[in-house]
Design a protein around this nucleic acid. Structure first.
Length: 429
RNA sequence: GGAGAGAUGGCAGAGCGGUUGAAUGCAACGGUCUUGAAAACCGUCGAGGGGCAACUCUCCGAGGGUUCGAAUCCCUCUCUCUCCGCCA
């Protein structure tokens, strides 16, 4: 959510930014400004009436104390009360509409973000490792997994339908190893606090993180209850500090959270239909930061480095792209996507997405901190900046390992750093 | 699921229809004293909105209602706690 005061002062700029994101926001911004003006006009009238009523009430109290009659004042106050009721109803209408629109306006992008229409114009900022030269035709991960008996799509289809999978034996253990490995690196080497959040959350948490109301279609909702299955641990972990005013000394706060993630994948019919790249339920280790506004861009670089470290330790070839405006999405002011190499597809695929949301989520969730001036004196509360990134998506990492570490005989070598988590196992065969 | 109790400022805790945005204590911050610190004493100390400003409005879990006037009375909801039932 953007600051209404900022919108008032920068309507032109925002419309431009939205255009770069491929959104025609002129009409939207106009409506917002109109509603905002209407609301404030009503507010001024309403306040004047309330002031009068408050004054009269005080007078009534005084007369009552002296045993005097106050009927005239009480009658007048009753009239004002009716006025106020009317004004408030109208003001509420404006406010409701305004709030609904504000929740629909995407974030604006940071000045450093490259302008571009879509994915093709993302900018590669880093490339690590060299894709292997296979002296055989590398198989896709789902074939490797099925042959090894560690991935079972048929069983999953019986249980839950398409876009689900069952992990078995060494596969289940590898998944668990990846989760532990990533959490260990982030908590022991990168200074994150581990969190294991609920996977069912209220709609307020979904709205606070920026998923609702716009992306309701992409999420699963529990029937007859105000509970949603989280599409990412970002949702509950961001909500961890909603409605709080943090001390400046607490920042930055860094959490690493493992959770299963649930996505309806509405609208992605036909894309990545095979394998475990795009499924309704997957595991992910998510990194979430709460920082001061001054520190958030430095934090973004660190966050991205923390995610990339996992790929480096696993010795998986990857590149990182900086998203251009057209690919930036709804919430982010700036984002990097580390992408891992998939030999069977001969391409890089997103395995993480590291974003700075600036105050976009903090404003929706009301997460503030108390800044300190040079003398260490506490000032007015300000919104924190939030950032998050996958560190990493477990399922896609699993798939990338199968593909990049596959051998001609159908076996898969286990990356060295994972072996301690698998009882020393060196290959899956 | 049933019965009951509760929700007030960073925390604890008054308040039960009329200058109460809220006593008091603790914490925090500034100061006096001190070589320094502690103690003691003095002072400051919630959040959000509107207005160029003077100033003003709102907020005592949330939303409605009663009243000239609500933290205080009524209703609904949410959450917490206790007991019973069920249960991993």
């Amino acid at each position: 959510m953007l600051d209404i005061k900022f919108i008032r002062a920068n309507a032109e700029l925002i419309t431009q930014h939205l255009a770069h994101k491929g959104v025609d926001g002129a009409a939207l911004i106009d409506s917002v400004l109109l509603l905002d003006k209407g609301r404030r006009d009503l507010l001024v009238l309403n306040e004047a009436s309330k002031k009068e009523r408050n004054d009269i009430s005080a007078q009534v109290a005084r007369r009552r104390k002296n045993g005097e009659n106050a009927d005239d004042l009480m009658n007048r106050s009753r009239e004002i009360g009716e006025e106020i009721t009317g004004l408030e109803a109208r003001e509420r209408e404006f406010t409701t509409q305004l709030d609904a629109l504000l929740l629909e306006i995407p974030n604006i992008h940071h000045s450093s973000v490259p302008i571009g229409a879509g994915e093709e114009e993302n900018v590669e900022v880093r490339r690590v490792g060299t894709p292997r030269n296979f002296n055989f035709t590398p198989l896709p991960h789902y074939e490797i997994g099925e042959k090894l008996g560690i991935l079972d799509f048929e069983a999953a289809a019986k249980i839950s339908g398409a876009r689900f999978y069952v992990l078995k034996g060494a596969g289940a253990r590898l998944e668990r190893a990846l989760i532990s490995f990533m959490l260990d690196v982030h908590t022991q080497k990168h200074g994150y606090e581990e969190v294991l959040p609920p996977v069912l959350v209220r709609s307020s948490a979904m709205t606070g993180a920026g998923v609702l109301p716009k992306f309701a279609e992409d999420a699963y909702k529990v029937e007859n209850e105000d509970l949603w299955l989280i599409p990412t641990a970002e949702v509950p972990v961001t909500a961890l500090h909603c409605d709080e005013i943090l001390d400046a000394s607490q920042l930055p706060i860094k959490y690493a959270a493992y959770s299963p993630c649930f996505r309806s994948e509405a609208g992605s019919a036909g894309r990545d239909t095979r394998g475990i790249i795009r499924v309704h339920q997957f595991n992910k280790v998510e990194l979430v930061w709460f920082t001061t506004p001054e520190g958030s861009y430095e934090a973004l670089e660190q966050l991205r480095a923390d995610a990339e470290t996992i790929l480096e330790l696993l010795e998986l070839p990857f590149r990182t792209v900086e998203l251009c405006t057209g690919d930036l999405g709804f919430k982010a002011a700036k984002a990097y996507d580390p992408e891992v190499w998939f030999p069977s597809q001969n391409t890089f695929r997103e395995i993480s997405s590291c974003s700075n949301f600036e105050s976009f989520q903090a404003r929706r969730s009301s997460i503030k901190y108390r800044p300190l001036d040079e003398n260490g004196k506490a000032g007015k509360p300000e919104f924190v900046h939030t950032l998050n990134g996958s560190g990493l998506a477990i399922g896609r990492t699993f798939a990338a390992i199968l593909e990049n570490y596959q051998n001609a005989d159908g076996s898969v070598t286990i990356p060295e750093v994972l072996r301690p988590y698998l009882g020393g196992t060196e290959t899956l065969s």
